[in-house]
């Protein structure tokens, strides 16, 4: 049964990953871009859907699901042909996929935040936060680069949504002024991601949504 899907997004946020996942499924979906800077995520209409005021939030037949990772797993269960994740032989294999996702969402994401929006982690001087973020992020990139030296994508020969989740994290560090040039396998992984039609479609859609949001506000 086809679902009525609507995704709330923020420009350049990790909703890019969710959109890429939706694009990979081929299912039609609506998007609504939220203007974080004007506090739209704190408005009662939005909080009624998502009490944490967070993005991404996917409405499925009117019911909200939040957390990128949970949305990706649900899409994977619902649209297995999109191959968002490799086939898991058992619960152990599935748990290990969840662990990678959890690592990105609970470690990579907050670390990128320290680099890109250090004021999220401090009421004072942001430079020492950004510097600390850079130290932590270098260690993460060393780990990713080492894994990618052994194979093209995180799980092997085939892309999975985890790859685009990593991509989102490291390109956002670059938005925060972090220099990625020392990590050669990451650079190659980036180029591979940016050649993906599902990612390109997601980015084009994000840009169109941004233009529409600006027009709505004008």
């Amino acid at each position: 049964m086809p679902h009525d899907l609507k995704l709330f997004t923020v420009r350049t946020a990790c909703t890019r990953v969710t959109m890429t996942a939706l694009e990979a499924t081929g299912a039609p979906y609506e998007t609504h871009m939220i203007d974080f800077y004007s506090g739209e995520n704190r408005k009662p209409e939005y909080l009624a859907l998502n009490p944490q005021g967070k993005v991404p939030c996917l409405l499925v037949d009117g019911q909200p699901l939040s957390e990128n990772l949970a949305i990706q797993r649900w899409l994977h269960a619902e649209y297995p042909e999109a191959r968002l994740f490799p086939a898991a032989a058992d619960a152990m294999a599935e748990a290990r996929q969840l662990a990678v996702l959890g690592w990105i969402s609970s470690v990579w994401h907050p670390t990128v935040r320290a680099i890109k929006v250090p004021m999220m982690w401090s009421t004072g001087d942001v430079e020492p936060v950004r510097e600390r973020g850079g130290q932590l992020f270098s260690d993460l990139l060393n780990q990713l680069d080492g894994e990618l030296a052994q194979r093209r994508w995180w799980f092997g020969d085939e892309w999975s949504i985890v790859d685009t989740y990593f991509w989102w994290a490291y390109i956002n560090s670059e938005f925060g002024g972090f220099d990625l040039s020392s990590w050669k396998n990451v650079a190659r992984h980036r180029a591979d991601n940016e050649a993906l039609p599902q990612l390109q479609r997601a980015l084009a859609r994000e840009e169109a949504d941004f233009t529409a949001m600006k027009a709505r506000q004008a």
Binding site: E67, S105, W121, R132
Partner: peptide, 27 residues
């Protein structure tokens, strides 16, 4: 899953800033 990973990615890093702020700064 959404709840579990919300605690891991929303609560835990915030609590860390509160409990172990040195984790997030060189200053």
């Amino acid at each position: 899953l959404s709840d579990l990973f919300w605690i891991a990615s929303g609560w835990h890093p915030s609590v860390r800033a509160n409990m172990m702020p040195i984790r997030w700064t060189t200053g």
